[in-house]
Design a protein around this nucleic acid. Structure first.
Lengths: 200, 200
DNA sequence: ACCTGAACACCGTTCAAGT
DNA sequence: ACCTGAACACCGTTCAAGT
């Protein structure tokens, strides 16, 4: 997908890398991120060893395909933080969830990576996570998001919604699930409804 | 776990079945529902063929372990539907999520089973789903839950939260995520906030 | 420096032989 | 009627040999 402009790479190695990425993108789109790596190598007309040379782990392959998109979504968070309308966070979460649901199993990979910065994929996830948390905190200061939620929780919920909807084509359903969560994030009475049986 | 009082089963077969269930419960608790079946058979001191004879698919094994619990949660939904306090749904969803997070990977198995009634596990999931949807609809009639949500969405969200938290011991985090969703389900102005930038 | 694919390891599933 | 485990199939990963 992303044009790989890595310098200092032998011509054939570069061509193989690009072929692998194209083949992986197609395989992931069809069968999800746990698609057979053997098939990926075969489709790319490349030995399986070449695949492992370029991408030692499956996560490295995933990272190579989605990092650019993750950075884009992270940059969007920073940009939206300068806007003042009430639905900034909702719109950003929509973008995030749409992206995470692009490959089946991607949300699971994100959860597994945790944000472990020692891996390429985990590092990319963490950059996104940081930018998202910053946006959430700004909304909390503006008063559009209740202050008793942890910014991490918001991102985890978005990821969970991506997981629940990543093998459906029903984009409306994804929106509905997200809408419930966004409304739940609205600034409300800080009182615990469990402790206060009387509705306002 | 559950005492299996299946009649008309040869004594040794019965004993093997019970051993397999005990071994599977421990393995699932330790490694999640995708634990090695070979290990389960070995722990049960039983040939691998015996495992497959009793439980032709992994889902059958999972079903045998959780069906009783699923029925219990389903029954609780019916019972809570006779109560009148505002937090019935919240409490029930708490029970549901706690149970679904009992084994790692169980939420994923529930999503995969979909509610396909041709399988034992899918059938059990569907019974639970039906009972839960009924409770949600009653709350919608009572006015504690907004009417523009699909009852299925509520159950899918609970499942997604179980997934996001099924490898953590932090029960508080699970509660926080659920709290956001429950508040999002509260009956509010039916107007789409996207179309109405002015807050109430 | 990079590529290749045979070889190895692991795990799930089946089925012929045994009680 | 039920149990057993060798045999098979599949897939991910490594590494010695080749260019």
């Amino acid at each position: 997908m992303t044009p790989t402009t890595d310098p200092h790479l032998r011509a054939d190695a570069r061509r193989n890398r690009d072929r692998l990425l194209a083949a992986a993108h197609e395989a992931f789109q069809r069968h999800g991120v746990s698609a057979s790596l053997d098939d990926v190598a075969k489709t790319a007309h490349v030995g399986i060893g070449t695949l492992y040379r370029h991408f030692p782990t499956r996560d490295d392959l995933i990272a190579a395909l989605v990092t650019a998109d993750l950075e884009r979504v992270a940059a969007l968070a920073d940009e939206l933080a300068t806007h003042d309308d009430a639905e900034v966070l909702g719109r950003w979460l929509g973008e995030l969830v749409d992206h995470t649901a692009s490959y089946r199993g991607l949300a699971e990979a994100v959860l597994a990576a945790g944000g472990d910065p020692t891996t390429r994929f985990g590092g990319a996830c963490e950059r996104l996570h940081t930018a998202g948390a910053r946006l959430v905190r700004r909304e909390q200061q503006r008063g559009t998001v209740r202050t008793d939620v942890d910014p991490h929780d918001v991102l985890d919920l978005a990821n969970a919604i991506a997981w629940a909807t990543d093998n459906t084509t029903d984009a409306l359903r994804r929106r509905r699930l997200l809408r419930i969560n966004i409304d739940g994030l609205r600034a409300t009475s800080g009182a615990d409804p469990l402790a206060d049986p009387a509705s306002p």
